[in-house]
Design a protein around this nucleic acid. Structure first.
Lengths: 191, 191
DNA sequence: CTTAAATATTGATGTATGATAAGAAATTAT
DNA sequence: ATAATTTCTTATCATACATCAATATTTAAG
């Protein structure tokens, strides 16, 4: 039994049938540090479940600068949700921040499971709901907080693994430059 | 048959039972311009479906300034998703921007329908997915675009009703001041 | 260990946008 | 219509953060 099933079992009673189907549709993969799993312009529509390690999704701007959309560690889902749910070509890239193990699950395969097993759909609906709340909170944060406030909230929210992420990537998640973040950190250290 | 059912029928075949249950749990309400439906600190957990008119959800900062989280018109859902899916007390307010008609649907009642009718849950899961993509796009926009770019995208995305919304509220949605938006508009007019 | 590469810091300077305040224009109410 | 209120604009000035460039520090590679 793999870790995804372990994780799902925390929430719902999962039948052997679902377990077996999940195993059948999920592809286990090892990702190296810096390795790209999903690249922009790819046509693959996949969900990723993190077993170990740490990943991030990011957008590369025309000028080459990158903005980080999401970080993910053990038991988190990550994906290019804009592509998964609207467009055709993927606009984000996903890479490993450290050596990681992941499960790749195709969109259509997952949807088949939703239909065949309503309790599995319910489990996922709750994930969606939490995800929506998280995204709204981030929007609120981007609209109302200063650089220092955003950083403080980030290290509080992501205490588990904030120190594993390079500061310049945290900066790109918060919507500030690495230089600004460095000044914020200096300011914080002096108090 | 009301407009919510009409709207749902565009997506899925809806049985009489679902229709009847939906009618039973949804409370129709008329909202005046400027009237608050949901206020911060309320304990109600409700989804709102807009039949006519225009609403917005917003957050009131400590200094009294408001930031707009979402606008909604006919056939859109709106709610305080942070409260609905995580916290207890509501942190957002929802008000009518014009005289509007809405349906109020309690969180628990809606969840009961999900369980009793998987096809209805599927319909809603797709809404969730689109919502996630929309929120991600907005985050990307906030992280990468200038004031002028955000405004141009806004009037393109919300062409249907952008002109119905006062500019200072559009500004508060884009994360800029009304004065800045005014300058952006002047700049655009001169070209 | 030593060197190379990646990441972080610091300083000097620039700029987009914010803050404040006043007046103009548009809505709404009387 | 007229007045009152709300919304929008304009100007001046302030500032948080960006940019650029150099150096320091840490991490990874040979």
């Amino acid at each position: 039994m793999n870790e995804l099933i372990e994780y799902i079992k925390h929430d719902i009673a999962i039948t052997d049938t679902i377990q077996e189907k999940l195993n059948r549709i999920s592809i286990k993969k090892e990702v190296q540090k810096g390795e790209n799993i999903l690249s922009e312009n790819s046509l693959k529509k996949q969900h990723i479940f993190v077993l170990t390690g740490c990943l991030r999704s990011f957008y590369r701007m025309e000028n080459g600068k990158e903005v980080t959309i999401q970080f993910a560690i053990k038991n988190w889902w990550i994906g290019d949700y804009i592509t998964l749910y609207t467009e055709n070509k993927s606009i984000l890239s996903i890479e490993g921040l450290s050596k990681s193990e992941i499960l790749l699950i195709g969109k259509t395969e997952l949807e088949r499971l939703y239909i065949e097993h309503p309790e599995f759909a319910t489990f996922h609906r709750k994930n969606f709901e939490r995800h929506i709340a998280t995204l709204q909170k981030r929007i609120l944060s981007l609209l109302t907080q200063t650089a220092a406030e955003k950083y403080k909230q980030f290290i509080a929210d992501y205490a588990d693994f904030a120190q594993k992420i390079p500061n310049y990537q945290i900066a790109s998640y918060l919507g500030i430059t690495a230089e600004s973040l460095s000044r914020v950190r200096k300011e914080m250290a002096n108090q």
